[in-house]
Design a protein around this nucleic acid. Structure first.
Length: 558
RNA sequence: GCGCCCGUAGCUCAGCUGGAUAGAGUAUUGGUUUCCGAAGCCAAGGGUCACUGGUUCGACUCCAGUCGGGCGCACCA
């Protein structure tokens, strides 16, 4: 038997009924139940009366009173009042709030899971770094945000597939191949003959050395033994890509990020999907030849200028396999796709969507969704570290994990709105890690674990706790905070904004620390002791669940 | 020049599809521990929400413009 403590949904239903009675002609009005900032304004507030004032041509306060009269009986409502311009403030009985403790303990790791996605498939593509070098801090942000987003979508009831797209074809791979080949020949980046577009990082030398030593590399789906032949460019390309992919995989695993699927750009060429897409686009009539190149009239679909598909040298531009790739996703049944990328990829959105529209395959105009995170700037010794792959100067994800730690790095990178630029101050994160909010949250969890470890009772006894004893200000604040958790998941999933999880956890931890400081738990009175332990066990569970979404550990000791 | 993102306390950032008196952390100042974890708690100060108009019962939130910062504007990816 389920207990009512998702009051927001419950109240929306009640007000919908009242609305049908009071204003049958205005049942389209959206019912918004919000949490007031001030406790004196109740636990929940509804502004329906004010929205109806204009269409009904009545005073909002009169409408509010009418709505209250028409509101069906509910055991969870303590009191209703009309306030201000016409707000209806709802006070929930403490008894109803107290039920959340049992709800959390019974649901366990499942507390916070909602049915928003209704089991539908969603494909989330993230990181998708080119295999031309190590993952840097920007990729780290993509990994942290993307992985957290996947976790949130899963908790919200979606069937999530995590996907990584490898651009293992094209000009940049040619540059990589040439750079490794030169290194194999003993030519270094400071040599006059080193190409302008060549990669200069030290890792290129590592790849070259491994190739010459005829090492074998095992990447996710490739097992490549180096030929050791300096003149075999194809063998070098194959080996270099596999080598760098392996390095990236190692870093991602160390970061706690896993994928269900790796898709390769080269495979789209190999199995004819690129050609098929090109043929379909030509057949669609949206292409034309000009200056010995093939163009797609993307201006038909909102782009500011048309784009080249096939260059004069006969090869395709990047967005062609990208369109083929997305068509493939669509055919795999992903009616919802989210691409998490750096903001510097912004221009691809219009092009990819235009290409998909030109195919006339029934794909919605706004498909796929994009989450673009803004750039990360890194501060070391108070100086901005310029990121340049070719110059080989940048902060790698591996550096961050080693220096700052996985938990703190993930929290730092995921705890901000993706739209905000992020300054990652390495020295701050390292030298003053105790001030990092992630430790504040973890500390709350560790404290609860310590108290529960001192208790000699049975865990199951907590389910039988007399929660009616939890009625102090500290306790009701915590109860309400726990009640809010599923709605935080909902917001994070709807807005594709995983950072709200981090802020919620900080607030929950703060409520707990205040409570902890003012309370004793292992008291004489058995009933009080059990009730309080049940409450903090529920808090620990919520912290555990929330941190899991962020990919951060919930330690019992620290 | 065009497109996208951002501008909120000294600093780093929240602010939920427009809601009632704009919030945290940090820094500063003061208080707090014979006690189950002080990586904690309590309190104080700190704001013309970049600026100017507009939309309405109500704007940090929406619209237009201005200023400032970032990113992108390739037959690169």
């Amino acid at each position: 038997m389920s207990v009512v403590f998702n009051f927001k949904i419950h109240l929306s239903e009640l007000f919908a009924q009242a609305l049908r009675e009071v204003a049958p002609e205005a049942t389209q009005t959206e019912i918004l139940i919000e949490r007031p900032k001030l406790a004196s304004h109740g636990d929940y507030a509804c502004n329906l009366a004010m929205q109806l004032a204009k269409p009904l041509r009545k005073s909002p306060r009169d409408i509010a009173h009418a709505l209250i009269s028409a509101l069906p009986e509910s055991g969870v409502i303590e009191k209703l009042e009309v306030a201000g311009a016409g707000f209806i403030n709802v006070f929930i009985t403490t008894a109803a709030k107290q039920q959340v403790v049992r709800g959390v303990l019974q649901a366990g790791a499942g507390y916070g899971h909602i049915h928003l996605g209704a089991g539908r498939k969603v494909g989330v593509e993230f990181v998708s770094a080119n295999p031309t070098g190590p993952l840097h801090v920007g990729h780290g942000r993509g990994a942290a945000v993307g992985d957290c987003l996947c976790n949130v979508m899963h908790a919200a009831g979606w069937d999530v597939t995590r996907e990584f797209y490898y651009n293992d074809a094209g000009v940049q791979i040619d540059n990589l191949t040439r750079s490794v080949q030169l290194r194999c020949k003993g030519i270094t980046p400071d040599h006059p003959s080193w190409p302008e577009e060549g990669y200069r990082g030290d890792y290129i030398a590592d790849v070259a050395e491994a190739y010459m030593a005829e090492e074998t590399v095992e990447a996710d789906d490739q097992h490549v033994k180096a030929a050791g032949n300096v003149n075999d460019a194809e063998a070098i390309r194959h080996f270099a890509v596999a080598y760098l992919r392996r390095e990236q995989d190692i870093d991602l695993r160390a970061f706690g990020v896993n994928f269900n699927l790796f898709s390769l750009e080269s495979a789209l060429y190999a199995d004819g999907k690129v050609k098929e897409t090109v043929d379909k686009l030509i057949a669609s009539g949206h292409t034309y030849e000009q200056d010995d190149a093939l163009w797609l009239r993307t201006t038909d679909f909102g782009d500011d200028k048309d784009r080249v598909m096939r260059k004069t040298d006969g090869t395709y531009t990047y967005f062609v396999p990208d369109v083929a790739y997305h068509l493939d996703k669509w055919r795999r049944g992903f009616t919802r796709v989210i691409n998490e990328q750096g903001a510097d990829h912004h221009s691809t959105i219009t092009r990819v969507r235009a290409g998909l529209q030109a195919l006339d395959a029934g794909i919605p105009q706004s498909w796929p969704d994009y989450v673009l995170h803004q750039m990360v700037t890194v501060l070391r010794n108070g100086q901005e570290v310029k990121i340049s792959k070719r110059a080989g100067s940048y902060v790698t994800l591996r550096d961050l994990i080693d220096e700052v730690g996985c938990d703190a790095t993930r929290y730092f990178l995921a705890a901000r709105h993706p739209d905000s630029q992020l300054v990652f101050d390495i020295d701050l994160a390292k030298s003053r890690s105790n001030d990092n909010p992630v430790y504040y949250i973890q500390y709350a969890h560790a404290r609860i674990s310590a108290v529960l470890a001192l208790w000699d009772g049975e865990r199951n006894a907590l389910l039988q706790a007399d929660v009616s004893l939890l009625d102090s200000d500290y306790e009701t604040a915590l109860l309400q905070r726990l009640i809010d958790y599923p709605q935080v998941i909902e917001i994070a999933a709807q807005d594709l904004a995983p950072h709200v999880i981090a802020f919620y956890l900080k607030d929950l931890a703060a409520d707990f620390h205040s409570y902890y400081n003012a309370s004793r738990f292992l008291v004489e009175d058995e009933a009080i002791k059990t009730a309080r332990l049940a409450l903090i066990a529920a808090v620990a569970q919520a912290i555990h669940n929330g941190l899991a979404l962020l990919g951060v550990s919930a330690p019992e000791k620290m």
